[in-house]
Amino acid sequence: MMGIFNTLKPLIAQRFKAHLTSPGAIPFVETKAAVLFKSPELSRLRKRLLTRPGLIGVKRGMVPFYTNEGLRIPCTVLEIDQVEVTHNKTVANDGYSAVQVGYGFKLKNQTKKMLGHFAKAQVSPKEKVVEFHVKSDDGLLPVGTLLKADHFKVGEFVDLQSISKGKGFAGVMKRWNFHGLKASHGVSKAHRSAGSTGGNQTPGRTLPGKKMAGRMGGHNVTLQNVEVVDVNAEKGYILIKGPVSGATGSYVKIQDAIKRYH
């Protein structure tokens, strides 16, 4: 019995290295170093991102679209004009992969920095530049690629991001759909006010996030899973089912629907 015990060598525990003693096995295996959960690298991998970039469009108005069966679909017209890749961001350089895409043409009031940036990419100066995160460097497109409206197909679903119309300083009834106070029964000059904003001595303060009057609109709004009704690459437009937030002439980011595609 003792002899058997003597043949077993004690395990040498070393950090990142596991020593195996059984005969015929690989003597040791190098393991990967642990990565911090909150590191930029891991957080990038955790993110649910698309494999390709989207487009920028400009909202031009709404029209009805009739199918051959006679269904009427109210549609928003988005213009896709001179959408070109202006820059690529890589994991090695920037810590994440992204495609920078520009829209249109604008020469007036361009800064020298931006002019140089566009000259480097060999594209004309753009009026709007946005960035689309992609999953990995495989999703990057060569700089200067012209993206047309047929990037998306009819029947596909997209996510739309745009800035909603500003409503100014709005009361709680308009901003948060509160009911207001009563029209009579002693209410004085407070018919559209919010009423109480919290408790008494406990907690002795108004809790953070309390819905109150303030600036309404003018913020980013994302519409998810919106159907593409019609696409015309040659004439440069996409028809999207239903309304899109923002005024006519506002920029709209169009991407594959994140909940449907990868």
Binding site: G61, L146, K235, G236, Y237
Partner: peptide, 20 residues
């Protein structure tokens, strides 16, 4: 600074809504 020419205008410059 080099400035590249824009691509040719779509729809020969017709406003999009008018064209649609």
């Amino acid at each position: 600074v080099k400035v590249y020419q824009p691509l040719p205008k779509l729809r020969e410059g017709t406003p999009l809504m008018k064209y649609v």
